[in-house]
Design a protein around this nucleic acid. Sequence first.
DNA 1: TCATACTGTAATATTATTTATTACAGTACA
DNA 2: TGTACTGTAATAAATAATATTACAGTATGA
Lengths: 135, 135
Amino acid sequence: MTNGRFATALHILTLLAKQEPELLSSAYIAGSININPVLVRKEIRNLQNHGLILSKEGKNGGSTLAKPSTKILLSDIYQAVRPTTLLGRSNTPNPACPIGKQINTHIESLYSSAEEALIQQLGSQTLADFTNRFS
Amino acid sequence: MTNGRFATALHILTLLAKQEPELLSSAYIAGSININPVLVRKEIRNLQNHGLILSKEGKNGGSTLAKPSTKILLSDIYQAVRPTTLLGRSNTPNPACPIGKQINTHIESLYSSAEEALIQQLGSQTLADFTNRFS
DNA sequence: TCATACTGTAATATTATTTATTACAGTACA
DNA sequence: TGTACTGTAATAAATAATATTACAGTATGA
């Protein structure tokens, strides 16, 4: 992925974890990340759908963690922003070529075992582990 | 990464491995992958720089593997096409925010250990292992 | 020695993806 | 009932990836 969604999501969750149980507004969060508030709201919505965040509408509204940071794995965050393919997109090879015809199947299974390794590694750390590194 | 370079490089190397020790032209390879020959030549050049491929210019020229496919790890291929950051780019957070100021350092080290896990997994298979899966 | 079939590479155009911006409806509070 | 939020759609702008065109350089072999 060439986008910054993982970094953005992690930043959002770090802020929420650090200022728990305060409700933080998307404008405040966007100011810290230095991106557009609409992007933040979209990502918050997504993290909400994945059960990591709770939001409250209306005046004095905002967002907070849906569960303690010790219960949020970094792999949960990855899964929430997971790109279609970790190692990039595949091509649409020539079906007339015996290699071209088969390669995407093999690439797919390769990608999924590679991603599995990544998820295992990310799953070994919690959001709390990550935020504790901040001085 | 949103690009198809890993898939392209793997496709190139698979073709070369399967037809060793023949010299394959970029036009032939591009026909199998179904992308522009110039992209193939660029990637071949890159794989050459990484010691995976040998090329011969002029008439009847083309490319072949620089070493047996049993000696090429899938992680070597990843390293050759490695994007700046596996998990996407980071933001340029607000330095006035105590979290924003530090987060990129922590994200960087997180990314590098995640990538390390991926490389280990890819390093457990050779190009020969991959090409042997083709029927 | 010259036509041919390649690689190598630069320059540019096109397309796809990502991010930013604008706008506004809906909600809760005080 | 004004104010400060979320939620979301629509669109624009910026960036990244791929395709295309063009041509110089190189080796082969007729």
